[in-house]
Simulated assay, not measured.
Amino acid sequence: MNKAQFTAAYAQRRGRDPKDAKQDVQAFLDQLVESLADGHRVTFKGYFALRTQKRRATRTHSFGIRQVDVPEQITVKWRTGTNLRAAVQQLLADRQEAA
């Protein structure tokens, strides 16, 4: 599901005008990006947690162990919460039973 499909499904589910739904989804994404860029951890308890992390030097074992400098960049780490995992597993199980 891409952003446009998600926005359309959200609009239909909430009974919202598609343009308003598009603004809602974009506002959510903008706030998410801004919070992560400010160094904040974004947590929806039980569903997911996002945080930024600077990459660090790493080691390679290809020609003996040696330190490899990796250019510094920011990565975003996603952690799935137990509620989200359980909800997806339950929905998949329900769909298999119905089939």
Rank of each mutant, 00 (worst) to 15 (best):
Y10Q: 04
A11F: 00
R41L: 08
T80W: 10
D30Q: 02
K19F: 00
A99Q: 13
T7H: 05
Q90W: 02
R79S: 14
V68F: 13
L92F: 09
R41D: 07
V70E: 09
T52R: 13
D94R: 13
Q90S: 10
Y10P: 01
R79N: 11
R55Y: 05
K45F: 11
K3C: 06
A8G: 06
F48W: 06
V76N: 08
I74W: 11
A93G: 06
V88G: 05
T60A: 10
H40T: 09
Y47E: 01
T58I: 14
A98G: 08
G64Y: 03
T43E: 11
A37K: 11
H61A: 11
G64I: 10
A4F: 00
Q53D: 09
V70M: 09
T60F: 06
A99F: 11
E34T: 10
I65Y: 01
L32E: 07
G15K: 04
T82M: 12
F28R: 01
V76A: 05
T58M: 11
L91A: 14
H40V: 02
R95S: 09
L91Y: 07
A37C: 09
R16C: 05
A8E: 10
D94G: 02
A93W: 00
T7Q: 13
K22I: 02
A11R: 00
T80R: 10
D20W: 03
F48L: 11
F6H: 09
W78R: 14
G81W: 10
Q26W: 09
R59M: 12
R79V: 14
R95T: 11
G15I: 07
M1W: 00
A93K: 13
R66G: 06
D20T: 07
A86K: 11
L84M: 15
L92T: 02
A4T: 11
Q73C: 12
D69C: 08
G39F: 09
T58W: 12
K3Y: 02
T43V: 14
E34Y: 03
L29I: 15
A27C: 07
A27N: 06
V68I: 15
T52W: 03
D38R: 13
A86P: 01
D20C: 02
T43P: 03
H61E: 07
A37P: 02
